[in-house]
Design a protein around this nucleic acid. Structure first.
Lengths: 219, 219
DNA sequence: CAAGAACCGTACCGTACGGTACCTGCAAGG
DNA sequence: CCTTGCAGGTACCGTACGGTACGGTTCTTG
């Protein structure tokens, strides 16, 4: 999930080091703690270098988003044949990964930052964040449910709508609650199983897919 | 949905007027636009009065949340007998109301404010917002699906889990996207129908409930 | 009418931010 | 050796905020 992203033409190693410190400050203290002076002090660089490298504070924030996105990679899915069992497996893995990404410290901090700015900057950072942070995971999920349909294991008319159903079943209001400061789930895997069971009940082609959907589960 | 909330022991009419202006400033310009000087100017009051009434800026924000919550009321559900048809009707009405509330200007602005603060204040406003803003609508939904279960129209073990499933089907990632600055849905009613169809497929006791669930729908 | 409270408008203070300018150290290259 | 460019350190500037103080005005109350 996290690893080297191959080429990083965006920034020099020194700049990446500074961006890492910036993310640390943001995670620890919110956007008020991410000041140019504070970052210069924490990263042992000068404010002048910050402005030379990133232009202004907005440029710094955009660079932080790009830097973080460059660290997150999704598996390139193997081309194995899809069986009902490993479709379910892949869906559950996706669900667990999604929950883990959304509840990560840096993800939450960047989302809080973008949400806070979106009220006044015309949602510039919101777009950036959705673009960089979600495109990968969206495409992975779309490819998966598309393959499920081609293999005759899933049934739906609109892949986009089906994906959003899956997303809603997995996340519900958890993301917003975490953004508001609530702790995450104590068992992501359980939630992943519940969501996939429900999804297969709605869009699977085998009746017994959802046999366990009515088992109870605390949040 | 919106109406007089009976007694409002919290604040005087003059203070409510000021809070209304504060909400307007917040909606129009985000939290940076909500300054004590700006509010005093916009509301034709003095900064000294603001501090006398609300203590400090945090007290003002808390008062704004309480003020807004006092304006939102949910219907007290009538005690009519539940049929499959009007259960579906009530669920769809709930879904439409939920989408409408979440996409409201003031709701979004307050949520953005609370999210922005939650990084550094220990989620004080997040808790306040969830408490004041969601308790009403949560209880309404829980009462509804509970009645559905008692009437033999719904089946589930854990009402809380079922409610979160319903919530996820209705909202998906829409709330976060709107917080990030994306526009809302162009047709809330369509999304409400889709979500309720899916919910009844999962938890309804009649097979034909979900017959239309696979109809496509753009986002 | 007089006394007092409540409130408005404004001036003011300390602070902290974003952003700029200047100086120093240092390593590369002739 | 000297020069050139890059980056760190620091002082500085203008601005805007939260919060306080004070004089003047209106409204209530006895």
């Amino acid at each position: 999930m996290i690893g080297d992203a191959g080429q990083m033409p965006e920034f020099t190693p020194r700049q990446n080091e500074v961006l890492e410190q910036a993310l640390r400050l943001l995670v620890e203290g919110g956007d008020r703690a991410l000041t140019t002076s504070g970052l210069a002090r924490a990263a042992n660089c000068s404010k002048e270098s910050l402005y030379k490298w990133f232009g202004d504070r907005d440029g710094l924030l955009a660079a932080m988003i790009a830097h973080q996105a460059s660290k997150v990679r999704t598996y390139e899915r193997g081309k194995e044949k899809l069986t009902p069992e490993n479709l379910r497996e892949h869906l559950e893995t996706f669900a667990r990964d999604l929950l883990e990404v959304l509840s990560g410290d840096i993800s939450l901090a960047l989302n809080r930052l973008a949400v806070g700015q979106s009220g006044r900057d015309g949602s510039k950072f919101g777009k950036l964040l959705l673009e960089h942070g979600r495109r990968q995971i969206d495409r992975r999920a779309m490819a998966l449910i598309d393959a499920g349909k081609r293999a005759g294991l899933l049934r739906f008319d609109d892949a986009d709508a089906a994906y959003h159903t899956l997303y809603g079943l997995i996340v519900s209001d958890l993301h917003v609650r975490m953004l508001l400061g609530e702790p995450g789930l104590k068992d992501n895997a359980r939630q992943a199983r519940r969501a996939v069971n429900a999804f297969l009940t709605l869009h699977g082609t085998r009746q017994e897919s959802g046999e366990a959907v009515r088992f109870s589960s605390g949040r």
